[in-house]
């Protein structure tokens, strides 16, 4: 079992098996994404309370879920990187930071575009928007490490520590922001972003959520493979693997 895991984490082996997975993952992502888009935009009924703008939910909610899920993956990989010092997990930490920041930014942008027709303003210091913004800052910090620390292995370990500190702090930050916003908007009745959903509205959301999940894995694999190639560019196996080109 350990031997197998060890082999799995060797960069050469990982490059080989992830290469086989990428086309399938991309195919599944594309199909699910198209089904989800069609279903969410054209088939799902109009929400009686929010009207048509609720359709933004089908991309906003999966982005927001992914922004947190990717952070959890990153912190998990960071833990593995610190304990077993595997190069692969360090690569996953740094690639997750970039992908997670993208999902977080998308969740914020779509949240703002949803807010304008619903609340009448692009930005409210709403608890969820605010903690999402701070999450984006946490991602930016981890991305910035790689521009300051040039040695990739040191940068990887520093990023891992930060990812773990972040995952301990995210609940505290989220709790404090929620409490703070309830303090400052005591009489404000906000329309919930995820209305108690009817199945006909829920299924497209689930399809989109899985599509985003698959997209994340595909992009992670592609970026991971690039980084492996680049880091191992001086080794024999890379030269051999590329000889076919």
């Amino acid at each position: 079992m350990w031997k197998y895991l060890h082999r799995l984490s060797s960069l050469k082996y990982c490059y080989e098996w992830s290469g086989k997975w990428v086309p399938w993952l991309l195919g599944v992502t594309a199909v699910l994404m198209l089904v989800g888009l069609y279903w969410g935009l054209l088939v799902a009924p109009t929400d009686y309370q929010q009207g048509e703008s609720y359709r933004i939910m089908y991309i906003h909610v999966p982005s927001a879920w992914m922004s947190m899920f990717v952070y959890a993956v990153m912190a998990g990989a960071g833990f593995v990187a610190l304990v077993w010092k595997t190069k692969l997990s360090e690569i996953i930490v740094s690639e997750c930071a970039v992908i997670g920041a993208m999902f977080t930014a998308l969740a914020l942008i779509t949240g703002m575009l949803w807010g304008k027709p619903t609340w009448g303003t692009y930005w409210l210091w709403d608890a969820r928007l605010t903690s999402e913004l701070i999450l984006l800052f946490l991602y930016f910090g981890i991305i910035a490490i790689h521009s300051v620390i040039e040695e990739p292995r040191t940068a990887g370990r520093v990023a891992s520590i930060l990812a773990i500190i972040g995952i301990i702090n995210i609940p505290i930050i989220h709790y404090s922001v929620t409490w703070w916003s309830s303090l400052h908007q005591p009489n404000m009745q906000l329309v919930s972003k995820t209305p108690s959903v009817h199945p006909s509205m829920l299924y497209p959301l689930l399809v989109m959520a899985v599509a985003f999940q698959m997209y994340f894995v595909s992009l992670l694999f592609i970026r991971m493979r690039n980084e492996i190639l680049y880091r191992e560019r001086l080794t024999k196996w890379v030269k051999k693997a590329l000889a076919g080109h």
Partner: peptide
């Protein structure tokens, strides 16, 4: 889309393009 097309379509466009 009920006058909300601008918001919905730009949200989808930004997301998909990104």
């Amino acid at each position: 889309l009920d006058g909300k097309g601008f918001y919905v379509w730009s949200a989808y466009a930004i997301t998909m393009i990104s």
